[in-house]
Design a protein around this nucleic acid. Sequence first.
RNA 1: UCCGGCGUAGCUCAAUCGGCAGAGCGGGUGGCUGUUAACCACUAGGUCGUAGGUUCAAGUCCUACCGCCGGAGCCA
Length: 431
Amino acid sequence: MKNTTYIDSIAEFKDKQATISGWLYNMRKGGKLRFLIVRDGTGTIQAVVSKTDVNEEVFALCDELTQESSIRVTGKVVADERAPSGFEMQVSHLELVSKADEYPISLKEHGTDFLMDNRHLWLRSSRQFAILRVRHEIIAACRAFFDDRGFTLVDAPIFTPNACEGTTTLFETEYFGSKAYLTQSGQLYQEAGALAFGKAYCFGPTFRAEKSKTRRHLTEFWMIEPEVAFCDLDGDMDLAEEFLEYVVQRVLKNKARELATLERDVTKLQNVKRPFPRISYDEAVAILKKENVEFQDGNDFGGTDETVISEKFDRPVMVHRYPSAIKAFYMKNDPTDFSKALCVDVLAPEGYGEIIGGGQREDDYDTLKNKILHHNLPLEAFEWYLDLRRYGSVPHAGFGLGIERTVTWLCGLSHVRETIPFPRMMHRLRP
RNA sequence: UCCGGCGUAGCUCAAUCGGCAGAGCGGGUGGCUGUUAACCACUAGGUCGUAGGUUCAAGUCCUACCGCCGGAGCCA
Protein backbone atom coordinates (compact mmCIF):
# COMPACT_ATOMS: atom_id res chain seq x y z
CA MET A 1 0.00 0.00 0.00
CA LYS A 2 1.00 3.57 -0.55
CA ASN A 3 2.99 5.55 1.99
CA THR A 4 3.81 2.57 4.17
CA THR A 5 7.15 2.41 5.93
CA TYR A 6 8.59 -0.87 7.16
CA ILE A 7 9.91 -0.98 10.70
CA ASP A 8 13.26 -2.46 9.70
CA SER A 9 14.04 0.72 7.74
CA ILE A 10 12.53 3.16 10.22
CA ALA A 11 15.92 4.76 10.93
CA GLU A 12 15.69 6.55 7.57
CA PHE A 13 12.68 8.44 8.92
CA LYS A 14 14.29 9.89 12.02
CA ASP A 15 12.56 13.18 12.93
CA LYS A 16 10.17 12.74 9.98
CA GLN A 17 6.60 11.60 9.54
CA ALA A 18 5.97 7.96 8.68
CA THR A 19 3.06 5.54 8.47
CA ILE A 20 3.36 1.94 9.65
CA SER A 21 0.84 -0.73 8.65
CA GLY A 22 0.79 -3.65 11.02
CA TRP A 23 -0.76 -5.38 13.98
CA LEU A 24 -1.05 -4.50 17.65
CA TYR A 25 1.36 -6.82 19.46
CA ASN A 26 0.70 -5.42 22.92
CA MET A 27 -0.53 -2.25 24.60
CA ARG A 28 0.29 -0.62 27.91
CA LYS A 29 -1.84 2.18 29.28
CA GLY A 30 -0.99 5.25 31.28
CA GLY A 31 -3.63 7.75 32.35
CA LYS A 32 -3.28 9.99 29.32
CA LEU A 33 -0.78 7.84 27.42
CA ARG A 34 -1.14 4.69 25.36
CA PHE A 35 1.90 2.67 24.41
CA LEU A 36 1.11 0.61 21.31
CA ILE A 37 3.62 -2.09 20.45
CA VAL A 38 3.20 -2.51 16.71
CA ARG A 39 4.67 -5.29 14.58
CA ASP A 40 4.65 -5.31 10.81
CA GLY A 41 6.49 -8.49 9.84
CA THR A 42 9.88 -6.78 9.72
CA GLY A 43 10.12 -5.87 13.38
CA THR A 44 8.33 -4.16 16.24
CA ILE A 45 8.22 -0.55 17.36
CA GLN A 46 6.55 1.31 20.21
CA ALA A 47 4.05 3.94 19.12
CA VAL A 48 3.20 6.44 21.84
CA VAL A 49 -0.24 8.08 21.81
CA SER A 50 -0.50 11.14 24.04
CA LYS A 51 -3.92 12.56 24.82
CA THR A 52 -2.60 16.09 24.37
CA ASP A 53 -1.27 15.36 20.85
CA VAL A 54 -4.24 13.70 19.16
CA ASN A 55 -7.94 14.42 18.84
CA GLU A 56 -10.45 12.69 21.11
CA GLU A 57 -11.57 10.13 18.51
CA VAL A 58 -8.03 8.83 18.01
CA PHE A 59 -7.38 8.58 21.74
CA ALA A 60 -10.69 6.81 22.34
CA LEU A 61 -9.92 4.42 19.48
CA CYS A 62 -6.84 3.19 21.37
CA ASP A 63 -9.09 1.70 24.04
CA GLU A 64 -11.07 -0.12 21.35
CA LEU A 65 -7.98 -1.92 20.12
CA THR A 66 -7.48 -5.58 20.94
CA GLN A 67 -4.34 -7.67 20.69
CA GLU A 68 -3.53 -8.44 17.02
CA SER A 69 -5.98 -5.90 15.62
CA SER A 70 -4.65 -4.62 12.29
CA ILE A 71 -3.90 -0.90 12.32
CA ARG A 72 -2.14 1.93 10.51
CA VAL A 73 -0.30 4.43 12.69
CA THR A 74 1.11 7.74 11.50
CA GLY A 75 3.46 9.97 13.40
CA LYS A 76 6.91 11.38 13.89
CA VAL A 77 9.80 8.95 14.27
CA VAL A 78 12.09 9.91 17.12
CA ALA A 79 15.22 8.38 18.57
CA ASP A 80 14.76 7.10 22.11
CA GLU A 81 17.32 5.19 24.08
CA ARG A 82 14.61 3.39 26.03
CA ALA A 83 13.29 1.73 22.87
CA PRO A 84 14.80 -1.67 21.97
CA SER A 85 15.20 -0.67 18.31
CA GLY A 86 16.42 2.81 19.24
CA PHE A 87 13.33 4.49 17.77
CA GLU A 88 9.72 5.08 18.70
CA MET A 89 6.83 6.88 17.04
CA GLN A 90 4.91 9.84 18.42
CA VAL A 91 1.49 9.11 17.01
CA SER A 92 -0.57 11.82 15.33
CA HIS A 93 -3.08 9.58 13.62
CA LEU A 94 -4.39 6.04 14.11
CA GLU A 95 -6.58 3.97 11.81
CA LEU A 96 -8.22 0.66 12.74
CA VAL A 97 -8.21 -1.70 9.75
CA SER A 98 -9.79 -4.72 11.43
CA LYS A 99 -10.56 -5.33 15.08
CA ALA A 100 -9.34 -8.73 16.25
CA ASP A 101 -11.47 -11.10 18.31
CA GLU A 102 -10.09 -12.13 21.67
CA TYR A 103 -6.64 -13.46 20.78
CA PRO A 104 -5.88 -16.92 22.15
CA ILE A 105 -2.14 -16.42 22.61
CA SER A 106 -1.30 -14.10 25.47
CA LEU A 107 2.17 -12.85 26.22
CA LYS A 108 2.36 -15.17 29.21
CA GLU A 109 3.47 -18.75 29.23
CA HIS A 110 1.70 -21.38 27.15
CA GLY A 111 2.12 -25.10 26.65
CA THR A 112 3.58 -26.44 23.42
CA ASP A 113 0.51 -28.46 22.47
CA PHE A 114 -1.75 -25.42 22.80
CA LEU A 115 0.66 -23.29 20.81
CA MET A 116 0.92 -25.94 18.10
CA ASP A 117 -2.89 -26.04 17.86
CA ASN A 118 -2.59 -22.32 17.17
CA ARG A 119 0.51 -22.59 15.02
CA HIS A 120 -1.03 -20.33 12.36
CA LEU A 121 -1.10 -17.55 14.97
CA TRP A 122 1.97 -18.57 16.95
CA LEU A 123 4.06 -17.70 13.87
CA ARG A 124 3.45 -14.04 14.78
CA SER A 125 5.31 -14.21 18.08
CA SER A 126 8.85 -12.89 18.29
CA ARG A 127 10.63 -16.19 18.93
CA GLN A 128 8.90 -18.02 16.11
CA PHE A 129 9.48 -15.04 13.86
CA ALA A 130 13.20 -15.16 14.62
CA ILE A 131 13.48 -18.92 14.12
CA LEU A 132 11.79 -18.89 10.74
CA ARG A 133 13.88 -15.95 9.59
CA VAL A 134 16.99 -18.00 10.46
CA ARG A 135 15.49 -20.93 8.56
CA HIS A 136 15.01 -18.68 5.56
CA GLU A 137 18.63 -17.55 5.73
CA ILE A 138 19.90 -21.12 6.00
CA ILE A 139 17.93 -22.18 2.94
CA ALA A 140 19.00 -19.13 0.98
CA ALA A 141 22.63 -19.83 1.94
CA CYS A 142 22.37 -23.49 0.91
CA ARG A 143 21.05 -22.58 -2.52
CA ALA A 144 23.56 -19.77 -3.02
CA PHE A 145 26.46 -22.03 -2.06
CA PHE A 146 25.67 -24.62 -4.70
CA ASP A 147 24.47 -22.14 -7.32
CA ASP A 148 27.73 -20.18 -7.01
CA ARG A 149 29.77 -23.34 -7.54
CA GLY A 150 28.20 -24.47 -10.79
CA PHE A 151 25.69 -26.92 -9.40
CA THR A 152 22.41 -27.39 -11.26
CA LEU A 153 19.14 -27.81 -9.40
CA VAL A 154 17.71 -31.18 -10.44
CA ASP A 155 14.76 -31.79 -8.18
CA ALA A 156 13.80 -35.38 -7.36
CA PRO A 157 10.21 -36.66 -7.50
CA ILE A 158 8.09 -36.91 -4.38
CA PHE A 159 5.98 -39.85 -5.60
CA THR A 160 8.21 -42.88 -5.93
CA PRO A 161 7.40 -46.43 -7.01
CA ASN A 162 9.59 -48.07 -4.39
CA ALA A 163 11.48 -47.53 -1.19
CA CYS A 164 14.80 -45.83 -1.92
CA GLU A 165 16.74 -47.76 0.67
CA GLY A 166 14.26 -50.43 1.57
CA THR A 167 14.69 -49.88 5.30
CA THR A 168 12.51 -47.16 6.76
CA THR A 169 8.73 -47.15 6.78
CA LEU A 170 7.24 -45.05 4.01
CA PHE A 171 3.92 -43.33 3.57
CA GLU A 172 1.89 -45.30 1.07
CA THR A 173 -0.58 -43.67 -1.27
CA GLU A 174 -2.85 -44.72 -4.08
CA TYR A 175 -1.63 -43.73 -7.53
CA PHE A 176 -4.18 -44.39 -10.29
CA GLY A 177 -4.86 -47.90 -9.14
CA SER A 178 -1.34 -48.85 -8.08
CA LYS A 179 0.74 -48.14 -4.99
CA ALA A 180 3.11 -45.22 -4.72
CA TYR A 181 5.21 -43.96 -1.83
CA LEU A 182 6.26 -40.54 -0.65
CA THR A 183 9.99 -40.17 -1.07
CA GLN A 184 12.35 -40.61 1.86
CA SER A 185 15.32 -39.20 -0.06
CA GLY A 186 16.17 -37.71 -3.43
CA GLN A 187 19.49 -39.53 -3.29
CA LEU A 188 19.10 -42.12 -6.06
CA TYR A 189 17.61 -39.66 -8.52
CA GLN A 190 20.35 -37.19 -7.70
CA GLU A 191 22.93 -39.69 -8.92
CA ALA A 192 21.24 -39.56 -12.31
CA GLY A 193 21.47 -35.77 -12.01
CA ALA A 194 25.19 -35.86 -11.26
CA LEU A 195 25.93 -38.09 -14.23
CA ALA A 196 24.00 -35.68 -16.46
CA PHE A 197 25.09 -32.33 -15.04
CA GLY A 198 28.36 -33.15 -13.29
CA LYS A 199 27.37 -31.23 -10.17
CA ALA A 200 23.72 -31.36 -9.17
CA TYR A 201 21.58 -30.85 -6.11
CA CYS A 202 17.99 -31.17 -5.09
CA PHE A 203 16.03 -29.47 -2.34
CA GLY A 204 12.67 -30.67 -1.24
CA PRO A 205 10.52 -32.35 1.37
CA THR A 206 11.07 -35.95 2.41
CA PHE A 207 8.80 -38.25 4.37
CA ARG A 208 9.31 -40.91 7.01
CA ALA A 209 6.42 -42.90 8.43
CA GLU A 210 8.43 -44.12 11.41
CA LYS A 211 6.50 -43.75 14.66
CA SER A 212 9.22 -41.63 16.17
CA LYS A 213 8.28 -39.40 19.07
CA THR A 214 11.42 -37.52 19.86
CA ARG A 215 12.71 -33.97 19.76
CA ARG A 216 14.75 -34.75 16.64
CA HIS A 217 12.06 -36.23 14.37
CA LEU A 218 9.42 -34.98 11.99
CA THR A 219 7.43 -37.12 9.55
CA GLU A 220 7.89 -34.43 6.89
CA PHE A 221 11.19 -32.59 6.71
CA TRP A 222 13.32 -30.78 4.15
CA MET A 223 16.64 -31.94 2.86
CA ILE A 224 19.21 -30.50 0.48
CA GLU A 225 21.20 -33.15 -1.36
CA PRO A 226 24.21 -32.39 -3.56
CA GLU A 227 25.78 -35.08 -5.73
CA VAL A 228 29.07 -34.76 -7.65
CA ALA A 229 30.47 -36.89 -10.48
CA PHE A 230 34.20 -37.75 -10.39
CA CYS A 231 34.25 -37.25 -6.62
CA ASP A 232 35.49 -39.60 -3.89
CA LEU A 233 34.88 -39.66 -0.13
CA ASP A 234 37.64 -37.15 0.61
CA GLY A 235 36.23 -34.74 -1.96
CA ASP A 236 32.78 -35.25 -0.46
CA MET A 237 34.08 -34.33 3.00
CA ASP A 238 35.87 -31.28 1.56
CA LEU A 239 32.58 -30.15 0.05
CA ALA A 240 30.59 -30.79 3.22
CA GLU A 241 32.89 -28.77 5.47
CA GLU A 242 33.18 -25.86 3.06
CA PHE A 243 29.38 -25.91 2.74
CA LEU A 244 28.69 -25.94 6.47
CA GLU A 245 31.25 -23.22 7.15
CA TYR A 246 29.61 -21.03 4.52
CA VAL A 247 26.07 -21.57 5.81
CA VAL A 248 26.94 -20.98 9.46
CA GLN A 249 29.10 -17.91 8.87
CA ARG A 250 26.47 -16.38 6.60
CA VAL A 251 23.74 -16.89 9.20
CA LEU A 252 25.98 -15.31 11.86
CA LYS A 253 26.56 -12.34 9.59
CA ASN A 254 23.01 -11.77 8.34
CA LYS A 255 20.83 -12.93 11.20
CA ALA A 256 22.62 -11.62 14.29
CA ARG A 257 19.49 -9.86 15.53
CA GLU A 258 17.38 -13.00 15.30
CA LEU A 259 20.04 -15.06 17.09
CA ALA A 260 20.11 -12.41 19.83
CA THR A 261 16.32 -12.65 20.18
CA LEU A 262 16.76 -16.39 20.66
CA GLU A 263 19.57 -15.73 23.18
CA ARG A 264 21.83 -18.02 21.19
CA ASP A 265 25.45 -18.20 22.41
CA VAL A 266 27.06 -17.40 19.05
CA THR A 267 30.61 -18.01 20.27
CA LYS A 268 29.85 -21.71 19.81
CA LEU A 269 28.98 -21.06 16.16
CA GLN A 270 31.93 -18.79 15.41
CA ASN A 271 34.19 -21.85 15.73
CA VAL A 272 32.55 -23.49 12.73
CA LYS A 273 35.49 -23.01 10.36
CA ARG A 274 37.54 -25.38 8.27
CA PRO A 275 39.16 -27.77 8.75
CA PHE A 276 36.70 -29.94 10.67
CA PRO A 277 38.09 -32.94 12.55
CA ARG A 278 37.80 -36.20 10.57
CA ILE A 279 37.74 -39.42 12.54
CA SER A 280 36.97 -42.95 11.52
CA TYR A 281 34.14 -45.01 12.99
CA ASP A 282 36.77 -47.07 14.82
CA GLU A 283 38.26 -43.92 16.35
CA ALA A 284 34.79 -42.78 17.39
CA VAL A 285 34.17 -46.14 19.05
CA ALA A 286 37.50 -45.74 20.88
CA ILE A 287 36.25 -42.40 22.27
CA LEU A 288 33.10 -44.09 23.59
CA LYS A 289 35.16 -46.90 25.16
CA LYS A 290 37.48 -44.37 26.80
CA GLU A 291 34.45 -42.56 28.23
CA ASN A 292 33.11 -45.88 29.56
CA VAL A 293 29.99 -45.66 27.42
CA GLU A 294 28.33 -49.03 27.03
CA PHE A 295 28.55 -49.70 23.30
CA GLN A 296 28.39 -52.80 21.11
CA ASP A 297 31.13 -52.56 18.48
CA GLY A 298 29.62 -52.69 15.00
CA ASN A 299 26.37 -50.95 15.92
CA ASP A 300 25.25 -47.54 14.77
CA PHE A 301 25.58 -44.66 17.23
CA GLY A 302 22.57 -43.68 19.33
CA GLY A 303 21.66 -40.16 20.33
CA THR A 304 23.71 -40.18 23.52
CA ASP A 305 26.68 -41.79 21.71
CA GLU A 306 26.66 -38.95 19.19
CA THR A 307 26.57 -36.40 22.00
CA VAL A 308 29.58 -37.95 23.77
CA ILE A 309 31.58 -37.96 20.51
CA SER A 310 30.62 -34.44 19.43
CA GLU A 311 31.42 -32.98 22.86
CA LYS A 312 35.09 -33.85 22.25
CA PHE A 313 35.24 -31.16 19.56
CA ASP A 314 34.47 -27.44 19.31
CA ARG A 315 33.10 -27.68 15.77
CA PRO A 316 31.28 -30.27 13.66
CA VAL A 317 33.06 -33.63 13.50
CA MET A 318 33.05 -35.88 10.45
CA VAL A 319 32.85 -39.57 11.26
CA HIS A 320 33.72 -41.74 8.27
CA ARG A 321 33.93 -45.42 7.32
CA TYR A 322 31.10 -47.00 9.31
CA PRO A 323 30.64 -50.77 9.04
CA SER A 324 28.98 -51.41 5.69
CA ALA A 325 26.55 -53.80 7.37
CA ILE A 326 24.71 -50.90 9.02
CA LYS A 327 24.70 -48.62 5.97
CA ALA A 328 22.53 -48.40 2.87
CA PHE A 329 23.10 -50.75 -0.05
CA TYR A 330 24.35 -48.03 -2.43
CA MET A 331 27.39 -47.12 -0.29
CA LYS A 332 30.72 -48.12 -1.82
CA ASN A 333 32.91 -50.39 0.26
CA ASP A 334 36.35 -49.24 1.34
CA PRO A 335 38.82 -51.12 -0.94
CA THR A 336 41.38 -51.21 1.91
CA ASP A 337 38.89 -52.70 4.38
CA PHE A 338 35.91 -54.30 2.70
CA SER A 339 33.91 -54.41 5.95
CA LYS A 340 33.70 -50.62 5.97
CA ALA A 341 31.69 -48.25 3.79
CA LEU A 342 33.04 -45.05 2.23
CA CYS A 343 30.49 -42.94 4.05
CA VAL A 344 30.50 -39.95 6.35
CA ASP A 345 28.18 -38.56 8.98
CA VAL A 346 28.65 -35.00 10.20
CA LEU A 347 27.77 -34.60 13.86
CA ALA A 348 26.88 -31.09 15.00
CA PRO A 349 28.43 -29.76 18.23
CA GLU A 350 26.60 -29.32 21.55
CA GLY A 351 24.81 -32.63 21.24
CA TYR A 352 22.70 -31.67 18.23
CA GLY A 353 23.55 -34.93 16.53
CA GLU A 354 23.69 -35.98 12.90
CA ILE A 355 22.92 -33.19 10.46
CA ILE A 356 24.62 -34.63 7.37
CA GLY A 357 24.82 -38.16 6.05
CA GLY A 358 26.56 -39.02 2.82
CA GLY A 359 29.37 -40.80 1.09
CA GLN A 360 30.78 -42.31 -2.06
CA ARG A 361 28.36 -44.44 -4.07
CA GLU A 362 28.93 -47.94 -5.40
CA ASP A 363 29.86 -47.42 -9.06
CA ASP A 364 30.51 -51.00 -10.16
CA TYR A 365 27.59 -52.65 -11.94
CA ASP A 366 28.05 -56.22 -10.70
CA THR A 367 28.82 -55.21 -7.12
CA LEU A 368 25.77 -52.97 -6.93
CA LYS A 369 23.52 -55.60 -8.48
CA ASN A 370 24.67 -58.15 -5.90
CA LYS A 371 24.03 -55.69 -3.07
CA ILE A 372 20.49 -55.08 -4.27
CA LEU A 373 19.87 -58.83 -4.33
CA HIS A 374 21.47 -59.31 -0.91
CA HIS A 375 19.19 -56.65 0.57
CA ASN A 376 16.18 -58.49 -0.89
CA LEU A 377 15.20 -55.46 -2.95
CA PRO A 378 13.16 -55.86 -6.16
CA LEU A 379 15.73 -55.79 -8.96
CA GLU A 380 13.30 -54.58 -11.63
CA ALA A 381 12.62 -51.40 -9.63
CA PHE A 382 16.34 -50.57 -9.69
CA GLU A 383 17.03 -51.26 -13.38
CA TRP A 384 17.17 -47.55 -14.13
CA TYR A 385 19.55 -47.06 -11.20
CA LEU A 386 21.79 -49.85 -12.49
CA ASP A 387 21.77 -48.16 -15.90
CA LEU A 388 23.80 -45.36 -14.31
CA ARG A 389 26.60 -47.97 -13.87
CA ARG A 390 26.02 -49.49 -17.31
CA TYR A 391 26.41 -46.29 -19.31
CA GLY A 392 29.58 -44.45 -18.37
CA SER A 393 29.85 -45.12 -14.66
CA VAL A 394 32.19 -42.85 -12.67
CA PRO A 395 33.17 -42.50 -9.05
CA HIS A 396 30.67 -40.12 -7.47
CA ALA A 397 29.66 -38.95 -4.05
CA GLY A 398 27.21 -36.69 -2.29
CA PHE A 399 25.39 -36.03 0.94
CA GLY A 400 22.12 -34.84 2.43
CA LEU A 401 21.69 -32.05 4.96
CA GLY A 402 18.58 -31.99 7.13
CA ILE A 403 17.31 -28.41 7.17
CA GLU A 404 15.29 -28.62 10.38
CA ARG A 405 18.08 -30.16 12.43
CA THR A 406 20.42 -27.48 11.14
CA VAL A 407 17.95 -24.76 12.16
CA THR A 408 17.58 -26.40 15.57
CA TRP A 409 21.35 -26.37 16.05
CA LEU A 410 21.99 -22.82 14.84
CA CYS A 411 19.08 -21.43 16.88
CA GLY A 412 20.05 -23.48 19.93
CA LEU A 413 16.58 -25.01 20.31
CA SER A 414 15.56 -28.11 22.22
CA HIS A 415 13.08 -29.41 19.63
CA VAL A 416 12.86 -29.53 15.81
CA ARG A 417 9.14 -28.81 15.73
CA GLU A 418 9.58 -25.05 15.93
CA THR A 419 11.96 -24.93 12.94
CA ILE A 420 9.36 -25.54 10.23
CA PRO A 421 6.24 -23.38 9.72
CA PHE A 422 3.76 -26.23 10.02
CA PRO A 423 5.38 -29.32 11.53
CA ARG A 424 4.11 -32.78 10.69
CA MET A 425 4.62 -35.31 13.45
CA MET A 426 3.02 -38.56 14.48
CA HIS A 427 0.29 -36.74 16.44
CA ARG A 428 0.31 -33.48 14.57
CA LEU A 429 -1.43 -33.01 11.22
CA ARG A 430 -3.29 -29.75 12.00
CA PRO A 431 -3.29 -26.91 11.28
C1' U B 1 5.90 -51.10 19.26
C1' C B 2 8.16 -50.86 24.31
C1' C B 3 9.23 -47.81 28.81
C1' G B 4 8.17 -43.53 31.73
C1' G B 5 5.28 -39.01 32.74
C1' C B 6 0.96 -35.79 32.48
C1' G B 7 -4.70 -34.59 31.83
C1' U B 8 -8.28 -29.07 37.18
C1' A B 9 -11.24 -21.87 34.40
C1' G B 10 -9.81 -19.40 27.51
C1' C B 11 -4.14 -20.10 28.93
C1' U B 12 -0.19 -21.56 32.77
C1' C B 13 -0.65 -23.98 37.19
C1' A B 14 -1.98 -24.92 42.79
C1' A B 15 -5.27 -27.58 46.07
C1' U B 16 -1.26 -30.77 52.64
C1' C B 17 -3.45 -37.13 55.38
C1' G B 18 -9.71 -38.35 51.26
C1' G B 19 -13.08 -33.07 54.17
C1' C B 20 -16.34 -25.78 51.27
C1' A B 21 -12.48 -26.01 43.66
C1' G B 22 -8.14 -21.62 44.10
C1' A B 23 -4.22 -18.07 42.06
C1' G B 24 -1.71 -15.49 38.08
C1' C B 25 -2.42 -14.17 33.06
C1' G B 26 -6.16 -13.26 29.38
C1' G B 27 -11.70 -11.04 29.11
C1' G B 28 -15.07 -7.00 31.30
C1' U B 29 -15.55 -2.19 34.41
C1' G B 30 -12.89 1.86 36.58
C1' G B 31 -8.01 4.54 37.91
C1' C B 32 -3.01 6.37 36.62
C1' U B 33 1.51 11.21 31.63
C1' G B 34 7.03 7.12 30.32
C1' U B 35 5.06 2.00 30.37
C1' U B 36 8.86 -2.29 29.05
C1' A B 37 5.35 -9.82 29.97
C1' A B 38 3.47 -2.13 33.23
C1' C B 39 0.77 -1.43 37.75
C1' C B 40 -3.75 -0.80 41.28
C1' A B 41 -9.11 -1.88 42.54
C1' C B 42 -13.50 -4.48 41.35
C1' U B 43 -15.84 -8.35 38.28
C1' A B 44 -17.51 -12.61 35.22
C1' G B 45 -15.57 -17.39 34.22
C1' G B 46 -15.53 -24.98 36.21
C1' U B 47 -18.94 -31.84 33.00
C1' C B 48 -11.62 -31.59 37.91
C1' G B 49 -10.00 -36.21 30.26
C1' U B 50 -14.13 -40.37 29.94
C1' A B 51 -16.73 -44.57 32.25
C1' G B 52 -17.14 -47.55 36.37
C1' G B 53 -15.77 -48.75 41.58
C1' U B 54 -14.35 -48.02 47.11
C1' U B 55 -16.16 -44.40 50.92
C1' C B 56 -20.47 -40.79 55.32
C1' A B 57 -17.47 -37.92 51.84
C1' A B 58 -13.22 -38.50 45.72
C1' G B 59 -9.75 -33.39 41.91
C1' U B 60 -7.20 -36.70 45.49
C1' C B 61 -7.65 -43.94 46.30
C1' C B 62 -8.66 -48.47 42.70
C1' U B 63 -9.81 -50.51 37.50
C1' A B 64 -10.43 -49.81 32.34
C1' C B 65 -10.34 -46.63 28.32
C1' C B 66 -9.10 -42.02 25.62
C1' G B 67 -5.77 -37.98 24.62
C1' C B 68 -1.06 -35.78 24.93
C1' C B 69 4.30 -35.45 26.13
C1' G B 70 9.55 -37.58 25.31
C1' G B 71 12.95 -41.55 25.86
C1' A B 72 14.35 -46.14 23.29
C1' G B 73 14.46 -48.24 18.38
C1' C B 74 15.05 -45.83 13.33
C1' C B 75 17.11 -41.79 11.19
C1' A B 76 18.20 -36.11 8.78
